[in-house]
Design a protein around this nucleic acid. Structure first.
Lengths: 326, 326
DNA sequence: TATCATTGTGTAAGCGATTTCAACGACAGG
DNA sequence: CCTGTCGTTGAAATCGCTTACACAATGATA
């Protein structure tokens, strides 16, 4: 492995000069030229380990996601990766498999270990999370939840759900049911359900509390909850879900119980999943700019890390949404 | 930041002793106890940067994927992450967005930079790739392609496609069409098409070369190709696709042109996508253990890195497959 | 008793960069 | 001619850890 000293010797300068050349310090034109050639000749690349030890910065960003195989998360990650790549950082990915305690574990690991900043694609934010975020030694940005006192990039789930509920209320005859997710997930659990209920109520068609079930983000859980709903109350004619994935499961359940024919609009979701759009002709759902949220969050983080002028640093950012197929 | 020297002083030993304690060298029981307490007291964690500089190992594995938002890739990544986490490594994720030259770029970046090994989820393997893999200074495992001279974990796409073709040949009346992907992707492009053709031929129902189209892995490309096929030849009654995602697009095209009613089995794919399974009742497709391939590849890689006894190191591994819904 | 493993310990030499510091030549102003 | 400034430069000190080495004990063996 060729190191800086070798380059320096070949160029007839000190290694300090090479370092300055690389990092833009004082260096005369002719030495710069000789160093440049020596580097090309030797194929030298500087050891990021040594650099990291000396400077304390690794150019690594830790990204914590709840689950990698979901369309929303992969799109967020794609956005994060885009920005990181463009700005000379790399992504250390940690997948918690929907276990909130592993989130804490990784927050810990990342702090003591080698990242310059953290992006947390958040689901449940407990007090312990809050404390961990608070005491984090590197800057951190949350995606998907709006947490007081932390930098967040999020969507207004309450408002979106409200609009969806309002829009659907008039359009559905028969009873509407709802499959949500745990309210510990404030955005996807609490806000979406509350917003949806409020929207229905505002349109004069309130949600029957007996027709609410809880899923776990998975297609199968949506299927199971829907089967149960349909068997409990045969008048249920529409099932709103907290995610498109669960809506897909619900749709399958409806198909099985009722047959395929009966109208197109029988479920709604959140996320505007591409498969669902193609295969059903489009259920009512909410489109979020997932990629954008990854991009925005990462730009914000790197701006504070790189000390970009004119950027006010970490702040909270609410992104827009769009109702689809209503 | 508390460092090893601080711990050593507090425990009344040398920092070498602390290092030995941490890495399992000679250490007496009572000093071990004192060191343990000192570490707990100070909350010391060792700097992975310094360790990396000294030992040359970063405990980081570079993972190069063509596209993060696809079900197959996310499942592979999930498998990789599982093993890495369990064995004390972390994942440096690089997303090439389907640009093969960015793959090369990352191979380069990773070698010179801080990874101990590389997992490449491969699509197209050009000669340049082969050279890059050959000259790679860290061990590397490929997933998804079988490349001579490199360690690979892959599925037998030819055989799977053959079986699928054979099984479908008898079951379809009317013409069968095929939407493939670029043959530069040997596994998903070349092998699947050739295997499928061979399977049809073996069953006495050969594929009409005029009914072959090329997609680009996306749902929309499947849709477009299918629209074209249907308009070119109205007798086409079944469209086999190289991926489930394209099959979803084809299905939408068929629905639009022909209406929904006409029989269930109208397309086939590869990958056993969960949405497709739920929303269509299951098209003929091939199930691959994507998660398993991530797990196997990573175990192989880490076994050679950690010098696990009884493991013959990097080798090539062919995983099984399963025909679904035929 | 002499000899030799065996186990435990500290000292010190790196790993490969960055960065402080003192110094130097040239050149302008007084 | 002296002094101050400016642009450049290299020597050397870190950054925090691992590990080769030398050296003690200690107990076992001859």
């Amino acid at each position: 492995m060729v190191k800086m000293k070798d380059v320096a010797e070949l160029a007839g300068v000190s290694s300090a000069a090479v370092s300055r050349y690389l990092n833009g310090g004082y260096i005369s034109a002719d030495k710069a030229e000789r160093i440049k050639q020596a580097i090309e000749l030797t194929g030298y690349v500087r050891s990021s380990q040594a650099r990291a030890l000396r400077t304390g910065s690794t150019k690594l960003i830790g990204v914590i996601v709840p689950k990698i195989n979901s369309e929303s998360v992969s799109r967020i990650t794609a956005g994060i990766g885009q920005v990181l790549g463009r700005r000379g950082y790399q992504m250390l990915l940690a997948n918690t498999d929907n276990a909130p305690d592993r989130e804490l574990e990784y927050l810990d690991l990342f702090q003591n270990h080698p990242v310059d900043g953290i992006v947390l694609v958040a689901t449940m934010i407990t007090d312990e999370h809050r404390r961990a975020i608070e005491s984090c030694r590197v800057p951190i940005v949350l995606i998907g939840q709006n947490v007081e006192g932390a930098a967040c990039v999020y969507h207004d789930d309450y408002e979106a759900a409200f609009e969806l509920g309002q829009a659907l209320a008039g359009r559905v005859d028969g009873k509407i049911a709802y499959i949500g997710v745990t309210e510990e997930d404030r955005a996807a659990g609490y806000d979406r359900r509350r917003g949806f209920e409020a929207g229905l109520r505002a349109a004069g068609n309130p949600l029957d509390a007996a027709l609410i079930r809880l899923g776990s983000f998975t297609l199968d859980s949506g299927y199971g909850a829907a089967r149960e709903l349909l068997s409990v109350d045969p008048d249920v004619s529409f099932i709103a879900c907290a995610t498109d994935t669960m809506a897909a499961g619900a749709l399958r359940a409806i198909d099985e119980v009722r047959g395929t024919g009966e109208g197109i609009h029988r479920v709604s979701g959140f996320g505007d999943n591409a498969f669902l759009r193609a295969l059903t002709g489009g259920i009512p759902t909410v489109h979020y700019g997932y990629l954008t949220s990854g991009v925005e969050a990462t730009n914000m983080l790197l701006n504070t890390l790189d000390g970009v002028e004119g950027e006010s640093g970490l702040k909270t950012l609410k992104l827009g949404h769009q109702l689809m197929n209503v």
